[in-house]
Design a protein around this nucleic acid. Sequence first.
DNA 1: CCGCATCCTCTTCGATACTG
DNA 2: CAGTATCGAAGAGGATGCGG
Lengths: 118, 118
Amino acid sequence: MSKPTDNCGFAAAIKMIEGKWKVDILCELGTASRRFGRLRQAIPEISEKMLAQQLRELEADGLVDRKVYPELPAKVVYSLTERGMALNTAADALCRWAEQFSPVAEASTQVYAAPAPS
Amino acid sequence: MSKPTDNCGFAAAIKMIEGKWKVDILCELGTASRRFGRLRQAIPEISEKMLAQQLRELEADGLVDRKVYPELPAKVVYSLTERGMALNTAADALCRWAEQFSPVAEASTQVYAAPAPS
DNA sequence: CCGCATCCTCTTCGATACTG
DNA sequence: CAGTATCGAAGAGGATGCGG
């Protein structure tokens, strides 16, 4: 492939967090490590299926760590990896960007009667 | 709603650029202003429908400016707004993050101790 | 040249039920 | 408690044709 995004790692970063619930999960884990059930409570709208799926993707991308305690009943704890925490830091720039321009809605459907350029 | 992401503008930022081709378009417009047809050439895999649709969404979010020249044949030029350019700046942090931990192919299945990739 | 409308396909997601 | 499996609905996305 030779898409323009191949040059900048931005696309790769977005790919990792564009999932429907990824940001919520990362935000929650950014607060503290959580068990599976605790995450469900924190994000009530998500289904078990999606939570498990998104967590596995985040784990595959090296953003989330998964620790299994072979107790009974089962216990699994999720936490951010170093990389995941670094993402939260990097995301801060985007946070400030979003807040900076928050309520702008200027219509720019302007029509120009310009000379033919090329 | 009361999701954890409501507090940080990060989710809002992601929403604006999580479209399948948004990053490509923004990257391309980050280089220079482009006409519709020129964008299609730059991103060959995208269909006309998606390009038009994504551009309208980006315009609605105030990231892209659309200038119509009522010539014949029609001519429309797209460019980044101030906000769009600011996004590219903010995205830089994410770029560096992605590159920092980039494709570290730490194959756990790889057992040999031989060096020398040709 | 730009881009909208229609049709059709493929993926995604939610709901439910079941296992260790 | 922490998942997996299956099904059906909903939406995203591609192809094509028409209109300004």
